[in-house]
Computed example of a mutant assay.
Amino acid sequence: MKEITLKVEGMSCGHCVSAVEGAVKKLGADGKVDLAGKSVTVKYNEQTVSVDAIKTAIEDQGYDVAK
């Protein structure tokens, strides 16, 4: 398992946390949002999930992932 921390702009509440963590979970990865730090730490299997797919899933929820 690999781990990456991504900066995510636009998160401000519990719904945001659920949306981002849920989007990551649908990919088969495990995400933990740090609302105060405006980031999400994702543990994923690089054989089945790419970083680009994780970023896209988060952006599809309406949040901006720092490039």
Rank of each mutant, 00 (worst) to 15 (best):
K26V: 09
V17F: 02
T41G: 08
K2F: 09
V49K: 02
T48P: 06
L6I: 10
K26T: 05
A53K: 12
K32T: 12
G14T: 07
T56V: 14
T41H: 00
V51Q: 07
G31Y: 06
Y44W: 07
M11A: 07
K7S: 12
K43C: 06
G22N: 00
L6G: 00
Q61T: 09
T5S: 13
L35G: 05
K25M: 03
M1V: 13
I4P: 03
S50V: 11
V40N: 03
T41K: 04
I4S: 02
E46T: 12
C13N: 13
G62F: 15
K67W: 11
V33I: 12
I54D: 00
M1E: 11
I4F: 00
T41V: 11
H15L: 09
V51S: 05
V49I: 13
S39K: 15
G28H: 04
K67V: 08
D52V: 08
V49N: 01
L35R: 02
L27G: 01
V17M: 05
E3G: 13
K26S: 11
D60M: 07
V65E: 02
K43S: 13
G31H: 04
T56A: 11
G62Y: 08
S39C: 08
H15P: 09
T5A: 09
D30S: 15
D60W: 08
C13L: 02
A19W: 03
A23T: 08
Q47D: 12
N45I: 13
V42E: 00
C13W: 10
V40I: 10
V49Q: 04
K26Q: 08
V24G: 04
S50C: 04
I54F: 02
L6W: 07
E21C: 05
V65P: 00
D52E: 15
A23S: 07
L27H: 00
G10R: 05
A53N: 05
V24F: 02
T56N: 15
K67E: 15
Y63A: 01
C13Y: 09
C16P: 05
T56R: 10
E3V: 13
V20S: 04
H15I: 12
V17R: 02
K26F: 07
E59W: 01
I4G: 00
G14K: 05
Q61C: 03
K25E: 15
A53S: 12
D30F: 08
A66H: 14
A66L: 14
N45R: 12
G37K: 07
E46H: 06
S12E: 13
V20W: 04
E21G: 04
A66N: 12
G22Q: 01
K32W: 09
V8Y: 00
D64K: 13
D30Y: 10
V8M: 05
A57C: 03
D64G: 08
G22S: 09
L27R: 03
E46L: 06
K7M: 13
D52Y: 06
T48L: 11
G14S: 14
S50A: 10
G22M: 00
V8T: 03
K67Y: 14
T5L: 08
E21V: 06
D30I: 15
Q61A: 09
C16S: 10
D30R: 10
L27V: 09
K26A: 11
C16F: 07
T5Q: 06
E21N: 15
L27I: 06
A66D: 15
C13S: 07
E9T: 12
G31T: 05
E21P: 03
V33K: 02
Q61P: 06
V49P: 00
I54P: 03
Q61L: 04
E21Q: 14
